[in-house]
Design a protein around this nucleic acid. Structure first.
Lengths: 193, 193
DNA sequence: CCCTTTTCACCTAGGTGGTAAGAT
DNA sequence: ATCTTACCACCTAGGTGAAAAGGG
């Protein structure tokens, strides 16, 4: 498992409704796994610092202490889990369907949704854990679990965008935001002809 | 865990494309679980007999032996797993997104898809397994795993409907088949007025 | 002939940022 | 003021049976 390399990590900010996908989403290349062994691959999110943040005068500034309580789920298992090392190394492992929310009440009912607090800074982490073939934990194998942290994936949670560049990046690249692209009508006409 | 009761089980036939949902879908009521213990709940599908089947003269008749090889995945973990007994007992546990296919090649790439052979009869089974809080197996708890079999949920896999009643049942009740309902236009006009 | 695959129009389900209203 | 929520038009993604085409 050592020697794992990073292809691309793409996370910035996002906006939530009651439930929004993380976009841009996390995406990793894994290498040097045992092709025949089985692994669970998942992401969790931890506080990156102990501050509230605020966007003021065009910059993010610290503002007081983070709330101590950290309720709800913070882990998202990749839907392909469990699977073989060969599967995980075949192509990029993407977390495009990872969902985020600030709704604490949803933590009990809805699985696979990460609960965060607005205006806090977070650090996603990648976990790769070898397991038995049926996906269940093995105490011996679990001790070989690995955690990977990429500081460039830190982000601040918001309920409304503060940065026009981030908004434009999402409009340009998120398929679901296609209706907000300036050239959308033009492209459509070109396809018709 | 003994004393679990059955609310409704609704499975008949279905048609696959490369990948179709089971409809009507399996749905169970669970009771007498430990509200604070954690469980994995999943369905698997086994051969109900050792025959090929054929629809001839308006009836299903046996025809030769089943193919011995049974490739690919036969298990579908409920997406809420793992979860507490209280969660599983709160409301009906439905398997509406369980996907079926006859495409053996897809067994490696796509998780959570059950691979079957056409014109064979199958028996779904419900599994309830107590696990540790993080969802991993515990040898002691696994020994208390329970399996429930309801013969009324047997079905024969097909690639084209042979029974007009089944087709009509699916058109009437599957939301995705709304466009095929005879009264669809009428209902739409009524909503407009 | 019987069974499987492909393609299609038509639908449900769900993910966007914008906007306005609400909350503190 | 500043942050959050509710709703919206508009889009992508994906689940239907029918019908036609493909295959042994």
């Amino acid at each position: 498992m050592p020697g794992m390399t990073l292809a691309s990590v793409r996370v910035f900010h996002w906006k939530w409704h009651r439930l929004r996908r993380m976009f841009p989403f996390l995406s990793f290349n894994l290498s040097a796994l045992d092709p025949t062994a089985h692994y669970n691959v998942y992401v969790d999110v931890i506080l990156a610092d102990q501050h509230h943040w605020r966007y003021q005068g065009g910059k993010w500034v610290q503002c007081g202490k983070a709330e101590g309580t950290m309720p709800g789920n913070r882990t998202y298992m990749h839907p392909d889990s469990p699977n073989t090392g060969a599967h995980w190394m075949r192509q990029e492992v993407s977390f495009g369907k990872l969902k985020l929310t600030n709704n604490k009440g949803s933590s009990n009912n809805v699985a696979q949704m990460i609960v965060l607090q607005s205006l806090h800074k977070y650090q996603p982490r990648l976990h790769v854990v070898e397991v038995k073939e049926d996906g269940s934990d093995d105490p011996f194998l679990s001790s070989k679990a690995q955690v990977f942290v990429f500081p460039e994936t830190q982000f601040i949670a918001v309920t409304a965008y503060q940065n026009a560049d981030i908004t434009q990046l999402k409009i340009d690249h998120n398929p679901f935001a296609k209706g907000f692209r300036d050239n959308y009508d033009t492209l459509y006409v070109q396809q018709e002809s």
